[in-house]
């Protein structure tokens, strides 16, 4: 492993991914520093998930380079140091909560019972250990999926819409846990299309049509766009007016 010169935990250099006629990721450069939470914001189909898959080593870039902790992705050994939470929860419905968690923990390497307990307590599923996943509510499945992602305590986390279907009280707890992890040095990239979560991130990355259209803290992005509303700021950087029409054709 080569220590990265830039000190970034996660890097993308002129990253491209093409599916047939679709340019899902179109020349993205990123450098995510350790111990910070990054929000990846953009509408559905803007290339958020593809970008995360490239960074997490689940897909090979058409061109350019993705690096995690200085190692060029995809790299199988590096996967043990990455936590990836997919958009659709990938759980075994007939397995219990504890069995699902234990399975992913074993695949990531030996994980202590204490770590599994911590993960379950965090998502408040400690009382549900023996419940088969198919009998959980949608929000509980989401929480279990998060526990499976965190159980091996990886230094880099890629979370694809982690709070969908999670009730507001628990959402607050999720975010305070993310903050604790970041404080301990974990690098976190959270994809979302919910703008109200963006203020909890240290830095935001706006993507649209496979390109980064703006990057900075929430305050920087808002003042740069001359607005207090993040959604309006996104439209500004996307070159759209308040109704979502391209500015050039606006009267």
């Amino acid at each position: 492993m080569h220590p990265s010169g830039s000190g970034a935990a996660v890097e993308a250099v002129d990253l491209h991914k093409v599916f047939g006629p679709i340019h899902a990721v179109d020349g993205i450069d990123l450098a995510l520093r350790p111990g910070r939470i990054y929000g990846l914001l953009g509408p559905n189909g803007s290339g958020k998930t593809t970008l995360i898959r490239l960074l997490a080593g689940l897909a090979r870039p058409t061109a350019g380079e993705a690096r995690v902790l200085g190692t060029r992705m995809p790299s199988r050994p590096m996967l043990a140091r990455i936590g990836y939470m997919p958009q659709a929860e990938a759980l075994y419905p007939e397995l219990s909560v504890a069995e699902n968690l234990g399975f992913f923990a074993r695949l990531e390497g030996t994980v202590s019972r204490a770590a599994m307990d911590r993960a379950l307590e965090l998502v408040e599923l400690g009382e549900r250990r023996a419940t088969p996943a198919m009998h959980l509510s949608g929000g509980m499945r989401r929480r279990l999926s998060l526990a499976c992602t965190l159980v091996h305590e990886p230094p880099v986390l890629f979370l694809d819409e982690p709070t969908v279907g999670v009730d507001p009280a628990l959402r607050v707890q999720f975010w305070s846990h993310f903050r604790r992890l970041a404080g301990a040095g974990t690098t976190i990239l959270v994809a979302s299309h919910v703008m109200d979560e963006a203020d909890r991130c240290d830095e935001l990355v706006f993507v649209r049509s496979g390109k980064v259209i703006a990057q900075g803290t929430s305050a920087e992005l808002r003042s740069g766009a001359g607005t207090t509303d993040l959604e309006a700021a996104f439209l500004h950087y996307a070159g759209l007016d308040a109704e979502g029409r391209p500015l050039e054709t606006a009267p």
Binding site: P77, P86, Y92, L107
Partner: peptide, 14 residues
């Protein structure tokens, strides 16, 4: 189909 294979491939399993 259920996405668990993709999830498995995000772990170091071969």
């Amino acid at each position: 189909v259920g996405g668990t294979l993709e999830r498995l491939l995000a772990t170091p399993v071969t």
